[in-house]
Design a binder for these strands. Sequence first.
RNA 1: GCCGGCGUAGCUCAAUUGGAAGAGCAUCGCACUUGUAAUGCGAAGGUUGGGGGUUCGAUUCCCUCCGCCGGCUCCA
Length: 642
Amino acid sequence: MPSAPIELSLQDGGRVTVAPGSSARQALIAAGLDLADGALLASIDGEVVELDRPLVHGGELKAITFAEPRGAEAYRHTASHVMAQAVKRIYPDAVLAIGPAIEDGFYYDFGLDETIRPDDLPRIEEEMARIVAEDLSLVRRELPASEAKALFESRGESYKVELIEDLGQDVVTIYEQGEFADLCRGPHLSSTGAVAAFKLLSTAGAYWRGDENREMLQRIYGTAFDTPDALEEYIHNREEAEKRDHRRLGPELELFSIRDEIGPGLVIYHPRGAVLRTVIEDYLKQEHARRGYELVISPHIMRKSVWETSGHLDMQYPMYFFEIEGQGYGIKPMNCPAHIAIYKSRTRGHHELPIRYFELGTVYRHERSGVLHGLLRVRGFTQDDAHIFCTMEQAADEIDGAIRFAFEAQRTFGFTEFKIALSTRPDHSVGNEEDWSKATEVLKSALESNGLDYFIDEGEGVFYGPKIDVKLRDAIGRLWQGPTIQFDFNLPRRFEMSYVGPDNSEHTPVMIHRTVLGSMERYMGILIEHYAGAFPAWLAPVQVEILPIADRHVEHAEGLARKLRSRSVRVQVNDERETTGNKIRKAWKMKVPYMIVVGDREVESQSVSVRSLAGRDERGVDLERFTAELLDEIASRRSCEV
RNA sequence: GCCGGCGUAGCUCAAUUGGAAGAGCAUCGCACUUGUAAUGCGAAGGUUGGGGGUUCGAUUCCCUCCGCCGGCUCCA
């Protein structure tokens, strides 16, 4: 405890001095920072301090509000303690597990024989409101581990005891509020009364420590915000996100369906979805060819022995196996072995490298039933898969090219914001340190030379090599798994791949796996949600719908359709006998980007009336002008914001 | 796979304590020939996810299987 006055500097350049032993709250008040502005915590030189803890040293003083991630996190963490306290009051037998803040909210896990059902959440919320009204102080205490253990043992909190044991610390911290005590590192708000707006969202099962061999706990998810309005907005955004759900929009727009009678996790593409997929695939084939990739095609099933060689059998990769005339076969869960087989079909010399094989490879994986999710997690899917075989010296250029390719493609499809992770060597891995560090360096410098921001996910690489994962931020701010680029030090050795080097001896090539989009299924799911089903013209399954006013205009409409089709525009004529209003409504619901109305006036003047999803509404447009603009829009693959 | 919830017409949803399965949209037929987000009338559509049980009687209660949803875990 300092005995001298504590010197604090402020952001605005001011300085204050407070008496030794002053709390952060007192310092903020002394500094004239209004606590009513929503200070939840304070920071000294960037280090978080709770409001009611005495300052141990001086430095730059700042208030932390909800607007800051650290503020929101403490706020929600406190909310999770409030929820846990409420649960303990209602269910005295509930045993506390863990309850952290997460993105957008918090959860708490409980061990409890009695089932907490969604219907019970309002009751828990009422109790939470009571605890907030009680305005209980959160008191932080440091205890010797043995004492803390005794405390939680006496309360029957066996999970907390286990946590303390595993922490292996001499001293642990606990937070108390009223009758409730929790093992917790903090930081927390100073009082339960500070939690202004919260809502419990759902219940779920979760394994203790995420281990499926351990007991199943009951988890309650909730969220909390600093104002009721912010909470309201969050709930509203959730509802909006639901409207974009590809599982709803996909069947509605007649893109695809996943049907019980066909099988779970297996996608059937309806005509419109098949068009969309074909457009994407054509784009990919064209772009790959342009960048020196060679298109290859491999079978859906391969001998079981191949999967022994690859190691998939040993690691019990979730595959489907069966027999043909007594011989074991597996349905391919990936395309690599076939690409390697093509490479190995003859002796390769270093002059040939790099070799880049690309395949739209359809693979099947036995995903467990509980994890299936629309198009995002399926059992059969088609990867835009490529394998690059090269020398370590060539790897830098290859990675650079793959990165440029991936980002150019993502931008073409309308994504402009990314979160990029570089995963480094995990504990259990194959290959030598030199290769790993070289490869990691190659990935790093390629990201940097392309001006891409990334973060390093330490030790999170796959066992066979370092990798780059790209997440895409969609129109409403959500992140989706996108391209990956990975080194593989495993398969080239397992399959005994080689090339003859300039020294006339055999060398093992470097293998790089990479995708540009990921899989057709998942990417279509992401696109549907990103555009809320209203695709840019180049992707739209139907680009133009022609709406004749009356029967006598159908022939003219068909003529226009033929003209547009001859220019490769995807056109449909609605020749049903309905009112024009209804035809517009239907085309609108199917999110057709352009609607063309033709009646007497248009036939007479050889023009069209154009309406677009994007908001255009224009009468008497010259057909040639419309066609030219449309063709330009399609050819440029523009993403118009709808 | 595990925990919890759910499953009624193609879709969205009704059906009192266990007592005759219903509506809107979509579909089909007829009429209407239409000018920018729903024309009118009519018809058809169901072993209430499958199987079993309790009961005089089951959409309703119980068991089981399948599937979906929210999670755990994993990944394209």
